[in-house]
Amino acid sequence: MEKERTYTLKIWRQPNANMKGAFKTYKVEDISPGTSFLEMLDILNDQLSENGEDPVHFDHDCREGICGMCSLFINGRPHGPDEEITVCQLHMRVFKDGAKITIEPWRANAFPVIKDLVVDRSAFDRIVQAGGFISVNTGAAVDANAIPIQKVNAELAMDAAACIGCGACVAVCKNASAMLFTAAKVSQLALLPQGDIERKERAMKMVAQMDAEGFGACTNTGACSAECPKGIDLSVIARMNREYFTAKVTT
């Protein structure tokens, strides 16, 4: 059994959206390296509860890296210091014994803090509602194999569709831009023949909604893609720009 470790945690505490927040420092002990980051926070919360202090609130649900709920900015990086994972897949073995860990919520105008480390990401839902769908009513579909799709395009669409909507792209972008998120959905549907009919309208509406939500613009730094837990490629942004320009010029 590996040695258990001690950490100093600097965590953003904010009781609700209207009150000001501040960092607070805590200590956790006896953490085994195989503990997940969120389990480490569970341990901290047990400790806080026992002392009568309100536990640290953070979003989490599936704890297996697919629901996209967890959203912590750990030591200056979204989802912490590891590649292509979400916080729930981050394990304490990557932090040295005695390390100081700073935990912040996603910071973006479009993602206001609800409490502590919990933010409101409903802006993403509204972007999808603006056009991130194919208008087909239940029951109106043709046979699934009536629409052959080139394997390479199906795979590219799947690459883009892998987005879990966690918001790490926005969190890490120096401009808090939602281009990678929006572009992933635009790309997925643009790559498939089913999505062709509405492609122009979709690109224009989703971009307009993205702008209306108060996200920043894209500087092509590539940080979003580098920190994306699902490794979504920067090329989706180029594709969305293409879709957008084509739509604007031809409609």
């Binding site: 194919i134 239940t138 799709i149 199906a154 089913q194």
Partner: peptide
């Protein structure tokens, strides 16, 4: 069977073979 049809129509990127079929 209707489910698969419906999902494909919605743009669900199911795995495909080289011929483009599911």
């Amino acid at each position: 069977n209707n489910i698969i049809d419906q999902c494909v129509a919605q743009g669900v990127p199911f795995a495909r073979e080289y011929g483009g079929l599911l």
